[in-house]
Nucleic acid binder design. Structure first.
Length: 347
DNA sequence: TAGGCCATCTGGTCCT
DNA sequence: AGGACCAGATGGCCTA
C-alpha cells in the first residue's frame, strides 16, 4: 500500500471515528447516570475514574482469596464511564495521530533540505536523521576550517553511519547531480524561492538549499562557492575533514560518532578561497564516471561502501524523476563532475 | 517467509 | 483536568 493510500485510509478512519465520537458523546450524555455494563468491564476495570457513582462495590467480591489492595478503590466501569473512556481515548488517538503527522511533515521538510531528495525514493526516517546530522556536521566543518574539503571526504562525511542502501543512494545521487548537494544560484532557480534567508556576499554565490520552500525554516547553510566546496585540495588527500575520517575512512557502520556540537564558525573567511582551475580538456577527458562504481561488491572488497552495493534496488535503479535537478551544465557543475570522475576512477 | 519500515493505538508520565 | 510527549505493542505492506 502506498503512503498516499495509507493516508487516505487513515483520514477516512479518522472521519469515521469523528462521527462515532460525536455519536458516542450524545449517547454518553443520554446515558449519563444509568446502566451498569458488564461486557467490557474486564479489560477496562483497571481504569480509575472520579465519578461519584458506584462508590460502593467490589469490596466483598474478591473475599479473602486475594490480598487487599491498597490505594484508592478501583471503581467499576459503568456503561457511561466506558463511553466516556472511549470518547477520551478517541480524542487522544486523534491528537496523537495529528502529532505524528506533524512530526512526519517536519521530517518530510528535512528530507527536502538534505541531499538526495527524491519524491519517489524516500529516505527512511532514521536515515533522514542520520544524513541530516552528517550534512550539518560536514558543513559545519567547512565553516569552521574555512577550507574547502575535497569531494571525497565530503561524500564520506555524508555517508558515515548510513546504511548501505542509503550510502549507495547518496553516491548515485551525487553522480546524477552534484549540485544537489551544493547548488549555485542560477537563472533557472525556482521563482517561488523567497529572498529571505538567502545570504549573499559580494562576488560569491548565494546558496539556497535544494528543497527550500517558503515557510520552511532556513537551513544554516549561508553562502559559499560550490566550486570551493568540491575542489580537490592538492597534497591534502581528505581536505579539512581529514581528522574527521582518521581511522574510519573505509569502515562503514555505527562507529561514526562525531562530536554532538561541532564548532561552528559562521564568520569563516570565504573570501580567502582560491579557485582551482580544471581545464576543459581535463574535464572532457574524465567526464565519464557514470556506472563505474556500481559493481555490487559493497564494502566486502575493501572499498568504501559508496562504490559497491549493486544489489541494492535503491542504487541500481535510481529514480531520477523526482530527484531535485537543475537544468544545464554550468562551469561549476563541470568542475564537480570532473572531481567525481577523478574520485570514482582513482579508487 | 523473515525482516524492515511504517501508522496507529494505548497507557503512563509530566506539565500547564 | 486535559493536553503533550513518549515508548511499547500490534498489524499491514513491501522486498529480498
Amino acid at each position: 500500500m502506498t503512503r498516499s493510500v495509507r493516508e487516505e485510509q487513515a483520514s477516512v478512519e479518522s472521519e469515521e471515528q469523528q462521527e462515532l465520537l460525536s455519536a458516542e458523546e450524545e449517547e454518553d450524555i443520554e446515558r449519563e447516570g444509568g446502566g451498569e455494563g458488564e461486557d467490557e468491564e474486564d479489560h477496562l476495570h483497571h481504569l480509575e475514574d472520579d465519578d461519584e457513582e458506584d462508590e460502593e462495590e467490589d469490596e466483598e467480591e474478591d473475599g479473602e482469596n486475594k490480598p487487599k489492595r491498597r490505594g484508592p478503590k478501583k471503581k467499576k466501569m459503568t456503561k457511561a464511564r466506558i463511553q466516556r473512556f472511549k470518547v477520551r481515548r478517541m480524542k487522544a488517538n486523534a491528537r496523537e495521530r495529528n502529532r505524528m503527522h506533524g512530526l512526519n511533515d517536519a521530517l518530510e521538510s528535512l528530507r527536502k533540505v538534505v541531499p538526495c531528495y527524491s519524491k519517489t525514493q524516500k529516505l527512511s526516517k532514521i536515515e533522514t536523521l542520520r544524513l541530516a546530522k552528517n550534512y550539518i556536521w560536514a558543513l559545519s566543518e567547512v565553516l569552521r576550517s574555512g577550507k574547502a574539503p575535497d569531494l571525497m571526504s565530503f561524500v564520506q562525511a555524508l555517508c558515515k553511519g548510513l546504511s548501505q542502501p542509503t550510502t549507495n543512494l547518496v553516491a548515485g545521487c551525487l553522480q546524477l547531480n552534484p549540485r544537489t548537494f551544493l547548488p549555485e544560484q542560477t537563472p533557472d532557480m525556482p521563482a517561488h524561492l523567497p529572498p529571505a534567508g538567502t545570504v549573499t556576499y559580494p562576488g560569491h554565490f548565494s546558496y539556497q538549499s535544494p528543497g527550500l520552500t517558503a515557510g520552511l525554516p532556513s537551513p544554516p547553510y549561508g553562502t559559499m562557492d560550490p566550486s570551493h566546496i568540491f575542489h580537490q585540495v592538492k597534497g591534502q588527500p581528505y581536505g579539512p575533514l581529514e581528522p574527521f575520517f582518521d581511522g574510519v575512512l573505509v569502515s562503514d557502520g555505527p562507529a561514526f560518532d562525531p562530536p554532538l556540537s561541532p564548532p561552528l564558525s559562521i564568520n569563516g573567511n570565504f573570501t580567502s578561497f582560491k579557485h582551482e582551475a580544471v581545464s576543459a580538456a581535463e574535464y572532457d577527458k574524465s567526464f565519464s564516471f557514470s556506472v563505474h562504481y556500481g559493481g555490487g561488491g559493497g564494502a566486502a572488497g575493501g572499498h568504501p561502501a559508496i562504490y559497491g552495493g549493486g544489489s541494492n534496488p535503491r542504487c541500481a535503479e535510481m529514480p531520477v524523476d523526482g530527484m531535485m535537478s537543475f537544468d544545464g551544465h554550468s562551469h561549476h557543475e563541470r568542475l564537480m563532475n570532473a572531481q567525481l570522475n577523478a574520485i570514482f576512477h582513482d579508487s
